[in-house]
Design a protein around this nucleic acid. Sequence first.
DNA 1: TCATTTTTGTACCGTTCCGCATTAAAATCT
DNA 2: AGATTTTAATGCGGAACGGTACAAAAATGA
Lengths: 206, 206
Amino acid sequence: MSETKKRGRPRAFDEAATIEKAREVFWDRGFEGTSLDALSAATSLNRPSLYGAFGDKEDLYLGTLAGYRDDSLVAMEEALDPSLPLRENIAEIYRRALSTYLSGETSARGCFLIGTATAEAIQHSRVRDMLRQSLEAFDAEIEARLMLAVERGELPKEADPKALSLLASSVMHSLAVRARAGAPRDMLEDLARAGVDMVCGRAPQK
Amino acid sequence: MSETKKRGRPRAFDEAATIEKAREVFWDRGFEGTSLDALSAATSLNRPSLYGAFGDKEDLYLGTLAGYRDDSLVAMEEALDPSLPLRENIAEIYRRALSTYLSGETSARGCFLIGTATAEAIQHSRVRDMLRQSLEAFDAEIEARLMLAVERGELPKEADPKALSLLASSVMHSLAVRARAGAPRDMLEDLARAGVDMVCGRAPQK
DNA sequence: TCATTTTTGTACCGTTCCGCATTAAAATCT
DNA sequence: AGATTTTAATGCGGAACGGTACAAAAATGA
């Protein structure tokens, strides 16, 4: 790491904070629906500074998607704490997801990736790849925990962690879409509960 | 119904066919990503004709969404033919869904509603309502079939049709998102199979 | 035949879009 | 201090945007 001070005028903004602010705008308005002027206003950077620091609009958008994916993966790792029972792990994943999906100024905004990147996936292959790769990463984390659960006997030996992880992710995808569609919280919580039972079996271990 | 001939110059286009062509464009490019010029080119109508017949861009988009919802509900009713076993019904739903989701000129385009309307749901409340209402209609059709299945003994008495229908729909939502994200067909078929087992139980009735 | 009604086609409106050229400002290096 | 390097700010420019005014065209009604 070069710890030497850089030559020119120093930046007057924090790169990570700027990406987070840009993410908020993209989240609400989508990629095509967001103008550079809106990004400029939200980040307090002029368009040329945005351009210089992050590239064009698609580059910046991909940066916000990558940040969201990384944050989500960290949150998922925390939720899947293997020192806790599987049932609590899965419930915690849905709890965290819903907490994010139901936030929003005007209306529940769902998942940033599913809610905005899906629309661009046909026309922008880099967005499509980012989306696919992110979904696969989420699947993989859940699958790993389910494999551990089978080893430990939290799930029966016949359980299929691969198939089960796809189903568990599916519930999350559906929560993401339905939240953004304006589904009531009760219904989403019912779905999350059903998802937990589906993965861990119906018997409560209260 | 007034069968009297209308006064002025007759239309040189078919309204339903035009909506279908517009749907194709919106499906690939999303609402914000589609220009009136693109719609005009695809439908062979000039912008003023489009505007006169369907209203503004959002009105036209809502019309294409409504058409897709109606088509999908009909397809779902067909798939849920109660004279066939539940397992075949659910498998058929996913089969039809995948057949649609995997079609597309450049890349698999997923579900029109989930793939494009979700992105607009925050900014355009009419789109959000259309999306929510459509998803609820799909849920309701599945739930009705599952209730019948419980009555008939295709599912155990303790089965919860409401919760199960939400889960069954979730698999469909996930197929929609993943297809558009570029997931390989094998994986989608695995998920669909897992979804059928989840709803109907693992025992194959071969 | 001529007025009326509706659709079609051309052309244009003001706005917004993304991206960049250019200059001023703020830091380090010599 | 002066040269150099990097960022910040202003402003522009060509293109595309959604939407519409207006006139020509094609039907019906009288």
